[in-house]
Design a protein around this nucleic acid. Sequence first.
DNA 1: AGGCGCTTGTGAAGTCGTGCACAAATCGCG
DNA 2: CGCGATTTGTGCACGACTTCACAAGCGCCT
Lengths: 257, 257
Amino acid sequence: MSQQRPGGQSGQPGAVPALPDLPEATVARLPEYLRALHNLAETGHDTVSSEGLAAAAGVNSAKLRKDLSHLGSYGTRGVGYDVALLIEQIEYVLGLTQRRAVALVGVGNLGHALAGYAGFATRGFRIAALFDADPSRVGEQISGLVVRHIEDLAEIAAAESIAIGVIATPAAAAQSVADQLVAAGVTSILNFAPCVLSVPEGVDVRKVDLAIELQILSFHEHRKASLTSLPATGPTGGLTALPGGLSATGTEEAVGT
Amino acid sequence: MSQQRPGGQSGQPGAVPALPDLPEATVARLPEYLRALHNLAETGHDTVSSEGLAAAAGVNSAKLRKDLSHLGSYGTRGVGYDVALLIEQIEYVLGLTQRRAVALVGVGNLGHALAGYAGFATRGFRIAALFDADPSRVGEQISGLVVRHIEDLAEIAAAESIAIGVIATPAAAAQSVADQLVAAGVTSILNFAPCVLSVPEGVDVRKVDLAIELQILSFHEHRKASLTSLPATGPTGGLTALPGGLSATGTEEAVGT
DNA sequence: AGGCGCTTGTGAAGTCGTGCACAAATCGCG
DNA sequence: CGCGATTTGTGCACGACTTCACAAGCGCCT
C-alpha cells in the first residue's frame, strides 16, 4: 500500500526502481487489463472502478484489486482508478515504454500472418527483422520488410538490439533456430512450433500450440456429450428457431488480424 | 474452463466408462503428452518410462505420473507405459477418436494461415467450413474450401455437425460472431480476437492473444534487465549468463522431430 | 523359486492462487 | 464540519496444483 518501492533494499541511486516480483498469474493478466484500459480510455472514461475494469477484462473484481495492489497503490478509495495513470503504470511494469524489437523466424503460412499482424505494432512491439532458412524465400518483401537468411541473424540481432524472438518454423527446425536465437543474444522466445525447446537458464520460452487449444476444447466437448442424455439441444436435433436479435449488424470487413 | 458442472453426479448406473473428472491443469497437459507419444511411436519406441515421457513433454516426471493416474492405470511397474496403448487412451479421453468438425470464421491474414495449418488435420480435426462477412471474400477458395458468407453459418453448422468454432476476425466483430456461433449450436470457441467474449453457460471459450504472449515475455525482459545491476536476491539466483555455451543444458534425447 | 533392481501409483506435505468479507480511506452533501 | 455512500486494499480461509518420498508391483537373473 504505502510501499512505493517493493523489493526492499535498493541502494542504487538513480537506478530503475526495482520491479516488484509479481506472481506469474498476475503477470499473465496485466496485459488483459491493459487492453481493457485502452478501450476505456478511447471511450472517454477517466476513471474506472475495480468492478468495471474487472468486467471489461473478464475477471473477478477481488482478483483484479489484488493484482493491482501488487504493483503499488494507484487507486483512490471511493473513486476508483485513474485510467491514464494505470495504463502508464502497467506499461512501465511490462516494459512497454520502450518499443521492443522482435525477430520473426519462419515466413511460411503462419509467419506471413504474424508479420502482418497489426496487433504487435499497436501494442508495444516492432517486428525488426524476418528470417527464413529457405533461400527461395530470402529477399521476399513482407509488410515492408525484406526476408533475410537465418545466417544473418546474429549480425542483425546485435544491430537492432533484438531481445525477443518468435519461432514460426516447422517443428523439425525449431530447436536449431532456438539455439541460434540464444547464440545471438535473444533471451525471450515465443514458440509456435509444436515441440519442446530446451534452452539455457535465463532464457524464457512461451509456447503457443493451436492444435493443443483445440484438443482441450475437444475434451470438454467430449465430456459434455457424455453427460448429455436427454436435453433438447442435441446435436443437429433440428433447426431451432434462431433468436432474430442476433443480426450481424456489427460485423465488419475482416481485415487482416 | 471456469464453468464446470457441479459435482452432483446423477444416476447413469455404470454404463459407459464415465469420463474421469480430470483437473483442468491435467487436461491442458494431455495434448502435450500425446504429441510426445506420437513422436516416440514414430521413432520406434514401444514403451516409455515416466521419466522419458516427461522429458519429451517438458514436465516433471512425478507430475506426469499423477496426470496419467487420473485416467486409470495404464502403466506397468518396472517397465513403463505402452506407447500405443497410452496414445489410444489419451485420444479417447480427449475425444479425438472422432474427427471433429471445426468452423473457421474470418479469413483475413490469420484466418488464411489457420485454414492452411496442417497441424489441425493431423491432430484430430477437420476444418469443415470457412466463413467471412466480407462479400468480396465469399467464394474465394482456400485449401480446397470455399469461403461462405457468415449468414450461412447456422445451416452449414447443422449439416456438418460442427461443435467447435474458431474466431479469427477483428475484435469489433468477435462478439457478434460468437453469438452467431452459439445460436448455430456451437458449444466450444477458440478466440483469436483480442477481446472478452460473453457466452451462455455451457459454452467453453479459450483465448489466444499473440500480443499478450509477447507482453508477458516483455515483462520478464524488463525484469531481467533491471536485475543485471542488482545483487541477486532469492532462490532463483542470478542468471549467470554463460556466454559461450550455445548448446542446450539438457543432454536428454531430443525426441526425434 | 526367490531375490533384486527398476518403475509406477499415491499419501502427504508444501506452494500457489482465489474469493470472501471487512476495515480504512475518500468524496460529496447538507 | 460531520455523516453516509462508495470503493480500495488486504487478512484469512479455502481449494487447486505441485513436489517429495516411498510402498507396492513387475520382470529378469541366478
